[in-house]
Design a protein around this nucleic acid. Structure first.
Lengths: 133, 133
DNA sequence: CTGCATGCAAAAACTTTGCACCGCC
DNA sequence: GGCGGTGCAAAGTTTTTGCATGCAG
């Protein structure tokens, strides 16, 4: 049987915070910001709720080659860019190839639920830094 | 100036081992197998060489939402499937969308060097397990 | 010889978890 | 008052690093 979920101001606060951000914060970043609202929240609670919200489909966990996991409040399909230099994670628009998942499913004996595309390279900010260096 | 790289039997062995595998081993897996050839190799050396080989472009590091990083000896463009249940990482064929990277570069002020697409779901093996459960 | 690579072990970075307590339903 | 959520701290997991020594060029 399904576990009943109780609301908590901690979880609400975490979700609300994420929704104000488009830079895909890490658990640590979430923690530091929530502490301004709930000073005694613990990092464990942040991790627990980020995991919970992911399971519930409210947010999305994103792992990249660079640095710790990040979290995205936007759950509609879209792609991401990862900067190899500073690790920043940027939303990409107009790059989604929706047919890919159907394509991939053809002749594949498993079940495909999700597709994720990442572009890697140097972000605009780091490009500028490199030039002036 | 570029650092001169010296060969080592450890690095050679790691690379050779990877090339025999199509399942994208973790550092730990590499370590255990190399120990049969070089019993006193250390895990640190394995990590150092996997990082080195990645930098050199000889292999590819792959981070997914599930479990530790994995390593791929094939550096030509191809996509992957990740099983949410067992974490296995499987090569996908015929799913590559080569135009995507050009598409993404349009109007993006950074520099895009690489594209990576992952499909997530349940692998064939776990499908069978689920059925019999 | 010179200095990169190694083994070892400690430490760092990131994440999960056990436990006692708190507060919602 | 039962049970999910929390804070705290300890522990788990994965990866990196400092240092003395080894070995390739």
């Amino acid at each position: 049987m399904n576990t009943v979920r109780k609301r908590s101001k901690q979880r609400d606060s975490i979700q609300r915070f994420l929704e104000t951000r488009r830079d895909h914060p890490t658990a640590e970043t979430v923690y530091h910001h929530i502490r301004e609202e709930i000073p005694n929240i613990s990092l464990g609670t942040v991790y627990r709720n980020l995991a919970l919200l992911s399971e519930m489909g409210e947010i999305r966990k994103i792992s990249t080659d660079e640095g710790p996991d990040r979290f995205d409040p936007i759950t509609t399909p879209h792609d991401h860019f990862v900067c190899r230099q500073c690790g920043s994670l940027i939303d990409m628009e107009g790059t989604r190839a929706p047919h890919l998942i159907k394509e991939a499913q053809k002749g594949f004996e498993g079940q495909i639920d999700d597709q994720r595309t990442f572009f890697y390279g140097t972000c605009p900010t780091c490009m500028k830094k490199d030039q002036s260096a």
